[in-house]
């Protein structure tokens, strides 16, 4: 593939994908449309999580940060009367700001210590929500959170319009995330992941870049929380507990985190399995167990995630191999 020219098939695939996404809700039942709304939000959630992992640190606080965005946006709109679209942005900004503050203690740690530290920080935030009934509503959380305002005849109370709203917001966010990764910043994130000492030796301030990745990822997670809360209308601290974090981890691990599309693949495939197959079989209570088995099986047998199947599939479809281009770590990761 020559540089600058986009493979025409990619255009075709993109248009087909877009058409599918637009047409999708019409083939779904009401409850499936609700699931589709959450799926679109979760796509952004797991993609933002991946941005964080680019620097090599795995956080266990991402879902709590999403909650920060949700609580902030809910409170701005409910208590202060800020219009919902603006409160959503404020929610995202609040999540980013909290992440910036947390960077100072957390990025003194690495690896396991960071993992545990981010977990502890998240739990502290959740306990604060639980403890302070004013303004967070305590263990019962917040109710009657205003929804997205109607635009003319379109009511965002319905899943269908909200699905399109999310599609637009998430689409734009994903484009932004993609741009970050493909820019010099993304290259620097990868560099810090693979050899932070070498990066420092040529003047890369690894703390600032780790913080940047964390703040950006958290801002988008906060946006996810805001999108979520104004659709569901109610939140409580347990919505953002470690079990929910486990789901994000599962999506990312099962999909794979080496490529931009890996985690998206993970969340889409697992949601479809969950909603279509498992729901049809009626295994409601057993679902976490099946998730557990999927998680274990993917770590054991598909350590590079579903995304690692894609190149194999491509190789099978066409004998021609395209030369790796751009960010190398996104192509092949051991």
């Amino acid at each position: 593939m020559s540089r600058g020219k986009v493979n025409p098939w990619l255009w075709v695939a993109g248009i087909v994908l877009l058409a599918t996404l637009i047409a999708l809700p019409f083939g779904l039942s009401f409850s499936q449309r609700e699931v589709a709304v959450l799926l679109v939000i979760n796509v952004l959630l797991v993609s933002s999580y991946r941005l964080m992992t680019l620097t090599g640190e795995w956080s266990l606080g991402h879902v709590v940060i999403m909650g920060v965005g949700a609580y902030a946006s809910a409170l701005f709109s409910k208590r202060l009367g800020v219009p919902v679209p603006i409160s959503m942005l404020l929610g995202a900004v609040t999540a980013g700001a909290v992440a910036a503050l947390l960077s100072f203690p957390l990025f003194r740690m690495k690896g396991f210590y960071f993992l545990i530290g981010s977990f502890a920080a998240g739990e502290v935030i959740r306990l604060i929500w639980k403890y302070f009934t004013n303004p967070f509503g305590g263990p019962k959380g917040l109710k009657l959170i205003p929804g997205f305002p109607d635009i003319g005849p379109i009511s965002f109370f319905e899943p269908l319009p909200y699905y399109y709203l999310c599609l637009i917001v998430v689409g734009m966010s994903l484009f932004f995330l993609y741009r970050i990764e493909r820019s010099r910043i993304g290259l620097t994130f990868h560099a810090i992941h693979w050899q932070d000492k070498l990066a420092e030796s040529v003047g890369v301030n690894t703390f600032s870049y780790r913080m940047l990745a964390f703040v950006l990822a958290s801002t988008f997670a906060g946006l996810c929380g805001a999108l979520y809360v104004h659709y569901i209308g109610t939140i409580n601290p347990n919505r953002f507990d470690v079990e929910e974090m486990v789901f994000v981890l599962i999506w990312a691990i099962v999909g794979g985190t080496a490529t931009f599309y890996g985690p998206i693949l993970g969340v889409v495939v697992l949601t479809v399995i969950n909603e279509v197959i498992l729901r049809a079989l009626g295994f409601d209570t057993a679902r976490p167990m099946i998730y557990g088995f999927i998680l274990i099986a993917s770590v054991l047998f598909l350590p590079n995630g579903l995304e690692s199947l894609v190149p194999k599939l491509q190789a099978w479809r066409t004998s021609r191999r395209t030369a790796p281009e751009g960010t190398p770590a996104s192509e092949e990761k051991a």
């Binding site: 290259l187 620097t188 990868h190 693979w194 050899q195 960010t327 190398p328 092949e332 051991a334």
Partner: peptide, 13 residues
């Protein structure tokens, strides 16, 4: 080195 990077990307960093 950044072993997972190309020669060019190493120097670019």
């Amino acid at each position: 080195l950044f072993k997972e990077f190309t020669v060019l990307d190493n120097v670019k960093i």
